[in-house]
């Protein structure tokens, strides 16, 4: 399936959503916070039954959902894992997500999974390989997918293009949209000495459907995409630049470690929402 432009969504989403974590289920059921939408970690819900699905169904009744996965391994040279895709499709039929996304990376080879978002070399071979697989995935899932730029700690000698060129070409050639992770751009730019603004300027405005925001950790020699703390101020500045260029793109706040009370995340999401509102107002 090759689709053009923005996705045909199940239910439109606006503003700043929050990553849904099991620690917050009770709070959400009790307080029904005014969050415009939630993003789920797809892989946590690819189960046969039980409380996770039941709670998700309850939340889905009140909020739009986007699905964000980590197990697709789109850049692997293994055949696509059809069983995994079938499970994703089943979950899509269950919750009718607005978007379905995963990462532009590889995480498995010879059937062996590393459960890590490993970067690809930015070569013609990898480009053609990923484009063909994205088309196959979109065909199987019956929807346009979003691919996210990952944070990375290595680059390869063989790369012949920049990350932003690679990401753009994948999106244009395969028809997938881009989930632009602002924190990941910042982390990788620090680790590999490139210019964040140059990255943003190169990505075509009409290919970006969602932003991610998260916290990273400074280890002096490098930054780690830790998802365990509040967003760093340079990342907030970059977010502002991104909104100016791409507009009020739906943004989700991710937190996977040191998960605080829901209110803490809600307030951080509100801060992002205010930044988004201000940029729209100025525009």
């Amino acid at each position: 399936m090759k689709a053009e432009g923005r996705a045909q969504t199940q239910q439109s989403i606006y503003g700043v959503g929050v990553g849904l974590r099991p620690q917050h289920f009770s709070y959400i059921f009790k307080h029904r916070p005014k969050v415009p939408w939630f993003e789920i970690l797809t892989d946590n819900y690819l189960v046969d039954g039980g409380p996770m699905l039941s709670r998700l169904e309850k939340i889905r009744a009140d909020y739009p959902i986007v699905m964000h996965g980590v197990g697709l391994s789109i850049g692997s040279t293994d055949p696509l894992n059809i069983n995994y895709l079938k499970k994703i499709r089943q979950l899509m039929e269950f919750i009718h997500p607005t978007f379905v996304s995963d990462h532009l990376c590889w995480s498995s080879i010879h059937g062996r999974y590393f459960h890590e978002l490993l970067p690809l070399p930015y070569t013609e071979e990898a480009l053609n390989h990923v484009v063909a697989r994205v088309e196959q995935v979109q065909e199987i899932l019956g929807t346009q997918i979003l691919l996210e730029n990952v944070s990375s700690y290595i680059t390869y000698r063989e790369s012949t293009m920049t990350e932003w060129e690679f990401l753009t070409e994948i999106s244009k050639k395969s028809g997938c949209l881009i989930l632009l992770d602002i924190n990941n751009i910042y982390v990788s730019a620090y680790n590999h000495h490139f210019d964040c603004q140059k990255y943003l300027n190169h990505i075509p405005v009409d290919r970006v459907a969602q932003f991610h925001m998260a916290g990273c950790k400074d280890y002096k020699n490098y930054l780690l995409d830790s998802h365990g703390e509040s967003i760093q101020s340079p990342v907030l500045n970059l977010y502002q630049q991104a909104i100016k260029r791409f507009g009020a793109i739906p943004t989700s706040l991710e937190r996977d470690n040191n998960i605080p009370e829901f209110n803490v995340l809600f307030n951080e999401a509100q801060q992002l929402q205010e930044m988004m509102n201000e940029c729209i107002y100025v525009a």
């Binding site: 890590e116 070399p121 700690y153 290595i154 390869y156 790369s159 000495h193 020699n221 490098y222 780690l224």
Partner: peptide, 24 residues
């Protein structure tokens, strides 16, 4: 296959992934 960086050597970059996989 990894390009070494001034502050982040190829070995250090690899070890970040190694530790992240083990930690995860």
């Amino acid at each position: 296959f990894v390009k070494a960086k001034h502050l982040l050597s190829a070995e250090k970059g690899f070890s970040i992934y190694l530790n992240s996989i083990r930690g995860g």
